[in-house]
Design a protein around this nucleic acid. Structure first.
Length: 814
RNA sequence: GCCGAAGUGGCGGAAUGGCAGACGCGGCGGUCUCAAAAACCGCUGGGGGCAACCUCGUGGGGGUUCGAAUCCCCCCUUCGGCACCA
């Protein structure tokens, strides 16, 4: 091997060596503390891009650092391999999704290896592999047995482009998160997971160190509201059941002047009078045709129609009209509301448009309640127009009204969530089949565990029809009933791919177990994940689902603890050099394979970390690569070209070099802990400059020089693993630098002997003094006042005040 | 509309109550060279001054403080999330 830094030669060499030595393979070791580091696994699109590198490299650096700190580190990688792109490729180009996926996985594995990351490839999981999805199906059956999976009819989100239903979380602004098509509403019978059973617990984030942003997003998504359900009898012949409404403001019940039902409300047809029938039906049909976007637009003026029916306010016996309007959502609360226009702006707008009465039931110092209101006002001082409750103060009103409702059996306190159950059915081929058989005799029958996996049939035609392609495979669909063996039919829907990724972190602990999803023993050692990293786009999908899965698994006795991921970090988005998202059409794509080809993996890794704080992302700077390449060349030179060596441990130059080395250890360690990789690299650059100056200046103490070089290689190892390993070997150190121990710093050696004290006059810097590091306050003040520059500015006057900040500055105020 | 994050040289960024611009890119000057590249050294926010220095300067405006990029209030811009959830 040449004596010049040749990244390609050493990177190839060490990648092969590490693999041959199984350097990154780990097993349980009770004698050592474990650290489970996980970065989100990629979808095998067929091309690893810079975004993947940006997400994975710092995650690898942090895992390597933990390993050097003595932890037994699990850092696995795999592929989230089910999903629509494979199926779309099959439709377009006639290739088999399994073959397409396998080829992509193969290619991306190779690209990932170029990164030189310390992944334990022996633990790789591929979610579309029957050996994996057997257990995804097993989870489905477990959830079913525990009452957490059920089949039900509901208004669901239908994506016409993907020809399948979507979970609520996959709908963004009324459009499909994946294809951007406008989502339609359909009433279908589908499989759901009862995530709402954990709604309350999912709001608690005890013992997790997650970004506030993610916790807030999940909290808002779950959307907990405290209120009451009130029952309004309906004044319609033959309708016995009352109209139930959920309200967060039961204290405004005397101000209810009309009721509103969602167009899809089951009682709507039954209460409508014959005279209003056509009008209501027409309105319902129009609402059904409207897209989610149209319906959810807050800009749009509210519309509605009168049913002709009346409800009775159970508090005061007042008859109030029942309307149907699409600003009330059938999916939330009870699908019907009591409208209090005086105190709710939406109801106010509706009341004003349709001439409904507006009765304020609170007084307010800024509102003249005897005159028509200009707008709704949510809160007031005391209740008015509320019969026996008149005079009750605002902050007691809720409790008193609810207590009354409860005592008179007309209502009760209720907590409602915005979160809906997780719809997991997909009318597509490339996913794990739902392991259920529909029997005419026995209904829904789970496939017995022993018959898992339910394999996807091969050679399937993919015309998107709105039904799963599996429905057309007669020989697959027809299956005997597990109970009596008589002809029955398989469930033809497949599972949402988010299900595959909801438990993959568990499978990594025991990826080849043929008997169980994982052994309890291994799970107890490795789980939960200590540090998870990934993109913020998964804040309310993957991360909410995986918390739900974990809690369900905990309640089944399969895992310990309440949370799957102790620490979470969201990296930012790496952009093209022009500041836009990288895309082929913009022509601003930075291809990692090309960067590795030109500069080497180590340089590309470092440049990605050097562009800025990891959580901020930002434009990739290709010209900045020159600085990183220079630095790596300098590291090479410092480790291979010795200065003139001598033995002067007590010399000032020796102390200065050792001080630089120990300060660098302290700073780099702190930056590792806080994921501040950009400043970490700048510290190493400074250290290299200090070493270079020392080398040029004359003979260097041999021990101090060796300490500096050794430290430099150890601190560089997680960032640039190949060059560090190569130079480690060239210096005759024991293989491998990656299993060596992270250096510790000596505070005494790192301490400065002198400090520069800034001297200010009225807050402006006028002088600097170099004083001993242990200078006392009195001496510092005295030195500052004695300064020639300060005397000039004081011009004979007495300072009003002198502020001293130890070791930093003196401010003379006049 | 609501919630959150951010706004600093030509560029990426550093500094989270105490020297604004660490480190790097780019630029300018120099060493080396027949020359160029590479490497190395020096300088590099604006204005004024021969200089020592002075002055302005962290999106805009106000405030707190001996001292503010940093804390508080108002506004502007950009990005992210949510958005008729009763």
């Amino acid at each position: 091997m040449s004596d010049r830094y040749d990244p390609h030669a050493i990177e190839r060499h060490w990648q092969a060596r590490w693999e041959a030595d199984r350097l990154y393979s780990v097993t349980e070791d009770e004698s050592r503390e474990k650290w489970y580091a996980l970065t989100m696994f990629p979808y095998p699109s067929g091309d690893l891009h810079t975004g993947h590198w940006y997400a994975m490299v710092p995650s690898d650096v942090a895992a390597r650092y933990r390993r050097m700190r003595g932890y037994n580190v699990l850092f696995p990688m795999g592929f989230d391999a089910f999903g629509l792109p494979a199926e779309n490729a099959a439709i377009r180009r006639g290739v088999d999704p399994a073959e397409w996926t396998a080829a992509n996985v193969e290619r991306m594995r190779g690209q990932l290896r170029l990164m030189g990351a310390g992944f334990d490839w022996e633990r790789e999981v591929v979610t579309s592999d029957p050996l994996y999805y057997k257990w995804t199906q097993w989870w489905f059956l477990q959830l079913y047995r525990h009452g957490l999976a059920y089949r039900g009819e509901a208004a669901v989100n239908w994506c016409p482009g993907c020809q399948t239903v979507l979970a609520n979380e996959q709908v963004v602004d009324g459009r499909c998160e994946r294809s951007d098509d406008v989502v339609e509403r359909r009433f279908l019978t589908q499989w759901f997971f009862r995530i709402t059973a954990y709604a309350e617990e999912l709001l608690r984030f005890e013992g997790v160190e997650w970004p506030e942003r993610v916790k807030t997003m999940q909290t808002n998504w779950i959307g907990r509201s405290e209120g009451a359900t009130l029952a309004f009898p309906v004044d319609v012949p033959d309708v016995e059941e009352p109209l139930r409404v959920f309200t967060t403001r039961p204290d405004t019940v005397y101000g209810a002047t009309f009721m509103v039902m969602a167009p899809e409300h089951p009682l709507a047809r039954r209460v409508t009078t014959p005279a209003q029938h056509d009008l209501v039906e027409e309105y319902q049909q129009a609402a059904a045709r409207a897209t989610e976007i149209e319906r959810l637009s807050t800009e749009r003026e509210k519309t509605g129609v009168f049913t002709g029916a009346y409800a009775v306010n159970p508090f005061n016996g007042r008859r109030i009209p029942i309307w149907v309007a699409d600003y009330v959502l059938v999916t939330y609360g009870t699908g019907a509301i009591m409208a209090v226009p005086a105190h709710d702006q939406r109801d106010f707008e509706f009341a004003r448009k349709y001439g409904m009465e507006i009765i304020p039931v609170f007084d307010h110092p800024d509102v003249d309640t005897s005159r028509p209101l200009e707008q709704a006002f949510p809160r007031g001082v005391r209740m008015i127009n509320s019969g026996p409750f008149d005079g009750v103060p605002d902050d007691e009103a809720f409790a008193q009204v609810v207590a009354f409702a409860r005592a008179n059996r007309i209502g009760e306190p209720t907590v409602t969530f915005r979160l809906r159950d997780w719809l997991i059915s997909r009318q597509r081929y490339w996913g794990a089949p739902i392991p259920i058989i529909h029997c005419a005799e026995h209904g829904i029958v789970p496939v017995p565990d022993a018959d898992l996996p339910v394999l996807l049939p091969e050679h399937v035609r993919f015309e998107p029809t709105g039904q799963s392609p599996l429905t057309q495979i007669e020989e697959w669909v027809n299956a005997p009933c597990p109970i009596d063996g008589r002809p029955a039919r398989r469930e033809t829907d497949t599972m949402d791919t988010f299900m595959c990724s909801s438990w993959y972190q568990m499978r990594y602990v025991d990826p080849h177990n043929p008997e169980r999803p994982f052994s309890q023993e291994k799970a107890r050692y490795w789980l939960p994940v200590d540090q998870y990293t990934g993109g913020a786009e998964h804040s309310v999908m993957h991360l909410l689902y995986t918390r739900f899965f974990w809690k369900a698994a905990r309640d089944m006795g399969l895992v310990d603890g309440d949370e799957p991921m102790k620490r979470l970090y969201n990296q930012g988005v790496i952009l093209g050099p022009d500041g836009n998202r990288m895309s082929k059409s913009r022509g601003n794509v930075v291809a990692p394979d090309e960067q590795v080809e030109r500069y080497g993996s180590d340089a590309f890794r470092c440049q990605l970390m050097f562009v800025g704080p990891w959580d901020q992302g930002g434009p990739y700077n290709p010209t900045g690569m020159a600085g990183i390449v220079r630095w790596l060349n300098r590291v090479w030179s410092l480790a291979t070209d010795e200065p003139d060596l001598t033995d002067v441990p007590a010399a000032a130059e020796t102390r200065a070099l050792r001080r630089a080395t120990h300060k660098t250890i302290a700073q780099v360690t702190a930056d590792m802990e806080s994921f501040s990789f950009n400043t970490l690299i700048s510290r190493l650059m400074e250290h290299a400059s200090a070493m270079q100056r020392a080398r040029e200046a004359g003979p260097v103490d041999a021990a101090a020089w060796d300490e500096a070089v050794t430290t430099m290689l150890l601190l560089t190892a997680p960032l640039a693993p190949h060059i560090a390993e190569e130079l480690w070997e060239r210096r005759g150190r024991e293989y491998s630098v990656h299993t060596a121990t992270w250096p510790t710093f000596d505070a005494e050696l790192a301490r400065d002997q002198e400090v520069e004290i800034v001297v200010q006059v009225n807050g402006k810097v006028r002088d600097r003094l170099v004083l001993p590091a242990d200078v006392g306050e009195a001496e510092a003040r005295e030195a500052a006042l004695a300064s020639e520059r300060v005397r000039e500015w004081l011009d004979g006057r007495e300072p009003r005040r002198v502020v001293y900040i130890p070791g930093r500055l003196v401010n003379v105020v006049m």
